[in-house]
Write a protein that binds this DNA or RNA. Structure first.
Lengths: 332, 332
DNA sequence: CTGTTAGCGCGTTCAA
DNA sequence: TTGAACGCGCTAACAG
């Protein structure tokens, strides 16, 4: 079977303690000759260290767990990319677990899995934890940070965009283009803090410009493609809206396609600004103007945060958002 | 710190062996009363089992590792979904590791990570392993299966679509619609077995119909959006092609957009059939006709395969492909 | 029905 | 500079 340090010790005629030291690069006080002999033996036996044993004795782990939702978002890849790159720099291994979409059971299972493995930290990508699961997490002593999701609670660490600002700026942008009747589509305004804040940002901008707030212009959803379609289906009874803020790129595509299906032209009949700014914005026609979030940065900072955390500081950070003008918003 | 079975034993006034048995549901020979007492104590201490310790002694693991490439494909989610569902049924935990795109270094690192953890199996999603890494994997005694990628070598287990058939059927479909000048775009025909087989299927179909094989109609690439665009850029010098087979949905979108940018209409001026059939086919306009692969099924069967493998049987299975007619192919 | 004991593979004192 | 011995938390015989 797999070789152990004991085998190496035997082959190299040294003690296991010596092997242990040398293989973990604690070579300060060892003969060049011994070191070489041990290394050679290790290679010969194709030695693979047993992480379970190491973690058992050191009570440490160098893997960070990323929990992602199977949600219809597509920015996860960018975040994971950021996580991956930064983690590699610090010699951390990263494992990813799926937790379904608002599935308490699956969330619990994922949390359980990582807790049993005593990972060094947990990154939660756009995961809306149930209260019970959140409590489980906070009690677990494992450092964690939420990514791409913000909280009102000051004790929960997160790295995300300022959702109020996103919607506020998007609305102002549309207003600056001459729009007065602006829809807000496909977010869970009454469920998540994210949705709540975006609604607030939108309302603030509208009010600051003495613009009418029509309830029907705000269409609930879950950031999905279908949510986007449904928003336009609802607007149809009320074609006054000249521009809509879609709460995800996927939703924006749904909005656009349903509008197209209704015979509307974009952006001539309807302007769209999308929130996220992933690659799909340029792959769709017309190319989607977007409020672009710094997903890569979120992932990268997530690792930093885990590394620096002394188990007490609850860091809450906002990453930059910027507006990318493409083809889906028209000056009217 | 975290409670151990020793703590529970003390609290419940039993031995650690009893605790161990009860907590792992080996309750056959235990008093209802003891069981209750132990369970209560465990709950009280918020006991979390230490997986590292368990794996150390049992030399078993119930986690399967999935290695995915950061490649510009988008079907991974479907495969992972299939893996997840089937794994849950068997009480397996799944962890996912990224291995970059044809990055030997990252591949090695991912392989190393899972080898050190002695997972119970490895699923490789569309990963083109370097020869050295493949050798490392085969020597490791850990069961593995490639997903969405086939091999000529009969000893390498995989579950994938029959790439020859995919291209053969796609080509025949186009021919049945009246097309004679058919392009094949955006695969790595001279690098991967997948590309090689698809090229062969295409050529076979063309030849069977006495159709001309024009080298320029076959455009190399890497399944990416940009590959798709480049193919059309190349065709421009040679506008004879009336239909193209795009080797991925992303590539198909690239093909379509570049054609659009050149002023072509789809499918009037150019028909497109896409290989993959993910959600993007219906989110794109015109909706993409596709050769749809059974990705979910691949993931699901991948777990079965791992479970049934006696470390010797090299299973090679093909999953179904079907053609979904949508809007991007025109009868001429 | 339950307890005792011996490791699993490794890092870490403490001596030598 | 090196080695012997202990223990991390747990399971698996083997007693009783």
């Amino acid at each position: 079977m797999a070789a152990t340090i004991k085998d190496i010790a035997k082959l190299a005629h040294v003690s296991i303690a010596t092997v242990s030291r040398i293989l973990s690069d604690r070579t300060e006080s060892h003969t060049e000759e011994t070191i070489a002999r041990v290394r050679k033996a290790a290679k010969e036996l194709a030695y693979q260290k047993n992480t379970a044993a190491i973690e058992l004795v050191t009570k440490k782990s160098n893997v960070v767990a990323v929990i992602v939702s199977a949600t219809p978002t597509n920015f996860s890849n960018q975040i994971i990319d950021g996580i991956q790159k930064k983690a590699a720099k610090h010699h951390l291994a990263v494992i990813i677990l799926y937790a379904g979409e608002n599935n308490t059971e699956l969330q619990r299972k994922a949390l359980q899995t990582v807790a049993e493995r005593s990972v060094m930290g947990i990154l939660l990508l756009a995961i809306n934890l149930s209260p019970a699961n959140l409590k489980f997490l906070t009690k677990s002593t494992i450092p964690f940070v939420f990514l791409a999701l913000s909280f009102q609670d000051k004790t929960i660490p997160f790295i995300a965009s300022d959702d109020f600002q996103i919607a506020y700026q998007a609305t102002n942008f549309l207003i600056s283009k001459g729009h007065r009747k602006i829809g807000l589509a496909a977010a869970d305004f009454h469920i998540s803090y994210t949705g709540y804040r975006r609604l607030a940002g939108y309302q603030k901008a509208m009010q600051e410009h003495q613009l009418q707030l029509v309830p029907d212009w705000v269409q609930d959803g879950n950031y999905s493609y279908q949510s986007g379609r449904r928003a336009i289906q609802a607007y149809m009874k009320n074609t006054q809206v000249t521009a809509v803020i879609a709460n995800s790129d996927l939703a924006a595509m749904g909005v656009a396609n349903q509008a197209l299906d209704f015979g509307l032209s974009i952006p001539n009949d309807l302007s769209i600004i999308s929130i996220d700014g992933t690659d799909f914005c340029t792959m769709f026609r017309p190319q989607l103007t977007s409020m672009t979030q710094s997903f890569y940065e979120m992932g990268s900072q997530g690792i930093d945060c885990l590394l620096n955390r002394k188990l007490s500081t609850a860091a809450q950070r906002f990453t930059a958002v910027s507006i990318q003008e493409r083809e889906s918003v028209k000056n009217i």
